[in-house]
Design a protein around this nucleic acid. Structure first.
Lengths: 244, 244
DNA sequence: ATCCAGCGTTGATGCAGGTCAATGATTGCT
DNA sequence: AGCAATCATTGACCTGCATCAACGCTGGAT
């Protein structure tokens, strides 16, 4: 029931990952981060930590000193909270272009690790704060992003509080599709790099219920099982299930 | 199961409420809003709509044009989202000092109405935006508040996704207690102005389960049933249930 | 004083999703 | 190729909470 076997104790923050050439990371950051305009991107890219990071494991843990802000440039991260008894709730997945740790509190309020091979830009908090104080428009942008995240979290409250397993999975798949098509071109196939356990912990279900619900969708030809993801066969059906 | 009988169609925003003398409202705003410092409060109080509002019903509805920002000065508001079939999820309760509609998007992403007799300050969005652009420190404060709300919402995701009915109620009561003691002095009695249905819709449960769980707490002497609220008899017990 | 509508409580029963367990499928290791 | 480890699927069974229903309490209307 949402327990996590290993990983509770994590190696110290970013030193867990391999540091790689930053030029690539900076370029990716510029091309991937659609939330900001060119000027804002340029300002930010000036203060990116040259030790960009290619990580396979833990990015940071809940309660840890928040020494930096991150931007995902490749791959996917899962953001989650753990209860003392091991129950896990995934509060979101971060895709290329997404910022992590924007809350400006001095400790991370959740943990983050890599779902697959990923790269992230690291922006030292000290420099970030200074830049924010100098550039009010960046502050405003930051607030817009936080407000957007808040809206997503509140939508997810409805999902976890009031929706059935079938509905939860439909909402999840359509939400993921929307985010992927914002990055890549439109496609009927949704990549699912995360495990069934991750999906279960995101949707407040068990791995068995997620698996059974997928099977149901496959059987009734709503979805098609393809390697590393699913293909949508009956979009209207998903939309009905997820309707708001 | 989280259905709401009436209230789906609401009278136009604030005109539903009775407009009252603003001097009182402004005074209350100044004394009640602990999130801001004196300078910030003064700046804001200059642009408060003189038509402050005493409301018993709907403040605003999801999807409505967001023409104003609000600050609760008295009473309590419930903030909620509805699914098309009537299922309701309450995403929060607003207490004196709390702002509503800070997201700066042009439409409200949730609905709000009064739990009991309440008063709110109304700050026109146009003036608010201008003030924000002039005063970066206010913008920063705003972002801090949004980030705090985001943290609360993410905590609530864990509650809805991974906790039992008993645990949910314990977390709810302790959270409410914490917020009340931040306003009033400390007290073992927690006022509960909202209905059992409201609590159920906040915790993703049914009214019957909430009632049964209260009864269990009363029977085992964890809580004492008092008029308009509950008294905590066994705080350690609640803390164990709510432990994070 | 009576009515009654709304709210809360409690009991009986049902079921969606959790738990437990067995079996494939996939991948990396030697 | 053979093996172990991890992940996904499926079946059998169980349970926590939902559903359905009855009833008591309270406060406002007449």
């Amino acid at each position: 029931m949402g327990t996590v076997t290993a990983l509770h104790r994590a190696p110290p923050c970013l030193d867990a990952g391999q540091h790689v050439d930053c030029a690539h990371c900076r370029t990716r950051f510029l091309s991937v981060c659609s939330a900001l305009d060119d000027d804002e991107l340029h300002e930010l890219s000036q203060i990116i930590d040259p030790r960009c990071v290619s990580a396979r494991s833990t990015l940071f843990s809940q309660g840890e000193e928040a020494g930096a802000v991150f931007n995902v440039t490749e791959g996917m991260a899962r953001l989650y909270k753990l209860l003392p008894d091991g129950r896990r709730q995934i509060i979101g997945f971060a895709l290329p272009g997404d910022f992590l740790g924007l809350s400006l509190s001095d400790q991370f309020s959740f943990s983050a690790d890599a779902v697959n091979d990923m790269r992230i830009c690291r922006i030292p908090r000290s420099k970030f704060s200074v830049l924010l104080d100098e550039k009010p428009h960046l502050m405003k942008r930051l607030h817009e992003m936080a407000a957007n995240e808040l809206m997503l979290a509140q939508d997810q409250l409805v999902v976890l509080g009031r929706r059935s397993a079938e509905e939860r999975l439909a909402v999840f798949l359509l939400g993921l599709r929307k985010r992927f098509t914002a990055i890549h071109h439109i496609s009927p196939t949704i990549p699912l790099p995360m495990s069934r356990q991750d999906i279960a912990d995101y949707l407040g279900l068990t791995i068995e219920t997620v698996s059974r619900t997928f099977s149901k969708f496959f059987k009734e030809r709503t979805l098609l099982n393809v390697p590393d993801g699913v293909r949508i066969l009956d979009l209207p059906r998903l939309n009905v299930l997820a309707q708001r």
